[in-house]
Design a protein around this nucleic acid. Sequence first.
DNA 1: TAGTTGATCGTCT
DNA 2: GACGATCAACTAA
Length: 199
Amino acid sequence: MSSKIPRAFYFRSTLRVAKDLLGQLVVRKYRGRRLVGRIVEVEAYRGSIDPASHAYRGRTKRNEVMFWEGGHLYVYFTYGMHFCANVVTREAGIAEAVLIRGVEPVVGLDVMERLRGKNISTFDLTNGPAKFCKAFGIKRKQNGVSLLGNEIYLAHGRRVVQSRIGVSTRVGIRSGIEKRWRFFEKGNRWVSKQKRWQL
DNA sequence: TAGTTGATCGTCT
DNA sequence: GACGATCAACTAA
């Protein structure tokens, strides 16, 4: 089917990686099942130069994984109930990462629906960072896993052409709001915080 | 359709 | 002791 994305992909500039992640596939092995989603919305967070980043004030127990070399998954717990997942970029010691905010479900929809619970429509399954984690069974235990392994990895998908990529400020932050580091596929139904009239 | 609010707890100040 | 890279349920109109 599709091949695993190599380490070198993650060792480039974080903004470049963020844009290139659109259209790529997230593959998750979950209890003998394979879940696949196509990435349609991301946000870049850049350690020491970005006040909105968890790593802005240096290394702590929580943000530890952001300082690892590119190609790892940084999962954090927030609002007392949600998990969000980031793809760590660049070489070890530079704390930058890309938050996965929205994916289009491709394989394993039945499992995703079960993990999300209740009667969730297909369009609400994975259109948000915490929704994606819940639908893909990503929790504290997955913090720090290597994306070059088999539990969770990224694979080459159909790239999103430049003209279809939307750019905006990031969602849900207070500092660093002037930076336009959110990238998404225009018009895709699984982009979060999108109004009906924008589709 | 837009705006508000409660849920809930680990992390850092 | 405050608050957060969120979500879903609710209210108003």
